[in-house]
Design a protein around this nucleic acid. Structure first.
Lengths: 282, 282
DNA sequence: CCAAAAGTGTTCATTTTACACCCATGT
DNA sequence: ACATGGGTGTAAAATGAACACTTTTGG
């Protein structure tokens, strides 16, 4: 840094950074920490995400995705995790690369920046009741329009939301979003809320169970005042799977496997389904 | 560059580069340019990709993916395209980000490098009969094992191949791989070859046609000495589609739309198929 | 017993698969 | 005419959607 002027440096390497879209479930009364809703009781779940208020130019005062620079001695996922931790204290159990955003237009006074966007899912328990500590604040996904977002972060968020919506039925994703244990109805409600369309509970139940990735904990949980429902836990399939989602790596990044960079969350892709559907383009 | 030693710079920003896996179809006799096979006649198509021989350390003498650095005043896709052009003279009509590879282990003497891998598809016509000009050479995908590849490029190639195999039935992809015009049997043979499994021709034909993305050119083409087959062309669906593949952008990058960075090759995702299949993980 | 949610069954439509068949063309 | 691939029809199987029904619980 510090050598040459900006226009000279445009021929050199752009800056490199990571941003993370962290998604969590919450109800209407989330922002305020009057935590009356115990153990998985939410009225009409919505997606929430934490944003950080910028103090420096450009976009001072605007809200931005948590992010930071990348050090040469760490992976991008690690950098994303670190940025997340230092700004929001969150420890997602799911974190995956989303897309690299680049281009000459991605500069604001300085050098253009290449941002490797990641997305992460955190369970309710990890949100610390959506605590705000001044610079960090949680926003409901559908209340973002009124917000002034920094850079092209709006686009990045949309990208992440689109990804989640098209993959929400993958058990590993719903499960991570809803928490470590859950009833089938909870799962169902989340998928319905996120995908925005009604889903037959009976069929949903069968499909999820048929995936072989849910394990009955033996425990029961009562949502309302009626018959208690079986509590399940997400458990990965035993055998290795023939296909991987886009072949994309995603580092599990929970304390156990953190740093190995090896966690693969393979998901059966097209060969059995996605690709048998012929799709459009353009 | 040029300030501080390597271990000091490890705390700074890593190097940034792009690599491209270019895939094309070819038959056994491709490497040698005895171009007897005219107009789409290939015996047992296989995937081929061009590699570049490294002249510098590290990995001098090994084969590597075409690639290069990224300038601040261009997008990653553009950088990938430029690198491709300068090393191989290829002009793919399909080029998409694949994944960003990173990590402290991705250094070889110098600073660790973050590589944004891309993948590209080129039609037969664009391969210049797989011409080799000394440093560039085409290799069949299944003949790579005997090769010494530089860096972790083997992994990147596998990533691209996996991606192609799981998406090969998407009309836009097959079509781009096979060339501007084609018969349904050609398409079929390619999908069969790439996916590695037999596909009923009758059903394949109906599915492709039902996608609404193939347009009859009115012309006929005779493959053997029998009845000529209708020649189709790939044409994107008119209406915008509700889902996009992972929401990933892919820049069309053909001379017409190049530089706009706007070409979206949306592909219906899971909401109708991929995600209805419940899948595993980890 | 009633209300409400858990959980199971059953039917019907749609899609996929397998494979038989007819058609067009050059020899 | 016949061999060969182009192209169509169709019945069985598998999957998915809709919805009726039984069970368990607290009041």
């Amino acid at each position: 840094m510090g050598y040459g002027n900006v226009s000279e440096r445009r021929r050199g390497q752009p800056d490199l950074g990571v941003s993370v879209v962290i998604l969590a479930l919450g109800d209407a009364a989330c922002a305020a920490p009057d935590a009356q809703a115990a153990d998985g009781e939410w009225s009409r779940a919505r997606l929430w995400l934490p944003l950080v208020r910028r103090v420096k130019q450009p976009f001072a005062g605007c809200w931005a995705l948590p992010g930071g620079g990348v050090r040469a001695d760490e992976s991008l996922e690690r950098a994303a995790y670190r940025a997340l931790e230092s700004t929001t204290r969150l420890h997602p159990r799911y974190l995956e690369q989303l897309h690299a955003f680049s281009g000459p237009d991605r500069s604001h006074g300085g050098l253009p920046m290449v941002t490797i966007a990641h997305w992460a899912l955190v369970g309710r328990a990890e949100t610390h009741d959506f605590a705000s500590d001044g610079t960090v604040r949680w926003f409901a996904e559908d209340a973002l329009d009124s917000l002034e977002l920094a850079f092209d972060h709006r686009r990045i968020i949309d990208h992440a939301l689109r990804r989640l919506r098209t993959r929400i039925e993958v058990p590993s994703l719903v499960a991570r979003l809803v928490g470590p244990t859950f009833t089938l109805r909870q799962l169902h409600d989340v998928v319905e809320a996120v995908s925005g369309q009604g889903i037959d509970l009976a069929n949903f139940r069968r499909k999820m169970l048929a995936s072989g990735q849910l394990e009955d904990t033996g425990r029961k949980r009562r949502e309302g005042r009626q018959r208690p429902a079986a509590v399940y836990r997400y458990v990965a399939a035993a055998d290795p799977w023939p296909y991987a989602w886009e072949g994309e790596r995603l580092d599990a990044l929970d304390p156990a496997s953190r740093g190995t960079g090896a966690g693969e969350d393979g998901v059966a892709d097209s060969a059995d389904d996605a690709l048998s559907a012929l799709m459009p383009s353009r």
